[in-house]
Design a protein around this nucleic acid. Structure first.
Lengths: 247, 247
DNA sequence: TAGTGGTCTAGACCACAAA
DNA sequence: TTGTGGTCTAGACCACTAA
């Protein structure tokens, strides 16, 4: 648990607005302020933290841009509800994703083995071909029906003996964070369409050669290094991505 | 061609900062300021448009958030180069998209007709079923090979006699902006995988039933109302989407 | 009418880059 | 040293909401 002082440190070299941002953001992240809750008014924030209105407004503006609060003239400032818009730009677990989509998620582990990295995957993870990888293959179910097949490739050196965990119960992200101190904070992904191989079609209970939505993703830790290469094969009839565009 | 005055209208009800935003954004969109070009300094903008520093800074801050400019302390403010990261969150024309991907784009118009809206499309465009739509079907080529098929449905009432234009030469967005004063500033899209119908497979020169990446998109004008419903069928072997995720 | 957020101004001091 | 953008303040007036 990160402890953040609840006042502005006037000695610090960190600008006031960043300090206030961390304070307010912390209260929202930690759930002290829940979605729908009303925030203190500008005037109260000004008095509480002894800052000018412009500085307070600068911070609130940042939080609006983050999408974590919204403001209504004459009414007040409120904690936003996590929105659909974030779906394709935030790293979400399968479980969270399915809950947002109104499905009941379940996982069956198909395989979990150690293997040497083939060149393609080694390149994505910035390691030498042949480096030892932990590979976990999972069938993902939504409301009992197959939704996707996932292949995870982890650099085993960074998370030794990770295969001893039960991936049907705990999410890979949780295990990495709690047992190895690795947080996946950034990722790059590519989205394609693919024809299902007979093997995948069989697992997903669809006709072979029918279309799949395919995503491959490289995830990076808080230290900036690649940790996981993930391939996801989604049933095209059950899964789609939504996003919003701007000028 | 939309004419934007190059000064602030003090009589207008539109806030000064939005007027200045439109002015600066216009110069960048129209290519008057090119990527890498240096913008006028804050002081010059203050004098040119007779605004306070805070107001000018508010606008520059918006443009930074849009990713269209970047600022370096002590050096100046510059027009940003379009980045890969923006690909899936910015509305781009086919032409621009292909240039970014290193292809030479071409377009063949397959069909352009007036038709009544069927219910599905009417719902997306927030009009009554039966409302007259202009439908334009185009085959998109990249380096001479088929890349995608696009079906555009426009609310004809908003852009009467639009079908008299040549869509192989000018982009739909340009025509809407220059001839009807409609700018597409926001869009919602859904990304799926689909099996190619025999007709689409034939147009795209692929085997029937092979996978397509499919996008449907509703675009909104600067007034907030839906204008276009677009369906794009991409060849899966030639097209993929890239994006970045955060915690 | 009182309280909220939205827009706008004038001015100050600071940190960084380049000459 | 000059000019750039970064941070911060104090105060003004306006528009919208709710009582």
């Amino acid at each position: 648990m990160t402890i953040i002082s609840d006042q502005i440190n006037r000695q610090s070299k960190i600008p006031y607005y960043l300090q206030l941002y961390e304070i307010l953001r912390g209260k929202i992240n930690q759930g002290i302020w829940q979605p729908g809750d009303i925030l203190p008014t500008e005037l109260v924030l000004i008095q509480t933290y002894q800052l000018s209105r412009n500085t307070v407004r600068q911070v609130l503006e940042m939080l609006v841009n983050d999408g974590v609060i919204y403001r209504l003239r004459g009414k007040g400032t409120f904690v936003a509800h996590p929105s659909l818009k974030q779906i394709t730009t935030r790293i979400t677990s399968f479980t969270e994703d399915m809950h947002q989509r109104g499905f009941n998620p379940r996982t069956r582990v198909l395989e979990s083995i150690l293997m040497p990295a083939i060149k393609d995957i080694a390149d994505q993870l910035l390691v030498e071909a042949g480096e030892e990888l932990a590979m976990i293959s999972r069938l993902r179910l939504a409301d009992g029906e197959p939704m996707s097949v996932e292949h995870s490739y982890l650099i085993h050196r960074l998370c030794p003996s990770i295969l001893s965990h039960d991936f049907a119960l705990k999410s890979l992200r949780q295990i990495l964070e709690r047992n190895y101190g690795i947080r996946l904070v950034r990722a790059r992904q590519v989205i394609r369409a693919l024809d299902a191989s007979p093997h995948l079609a069989n697992l997903l209970k669809i006709k072979k050669n029918s279309a799949l939505l395919y995503i491959d993703r490289v995830s990076f830790s808080q230290f900036g290094n690649p940790v996981e290469f993930l391939q996801i094969y989604y049933r095209a009839d059950r899964y789609s991505l939504y996003n919003e565009l701007n000028e």
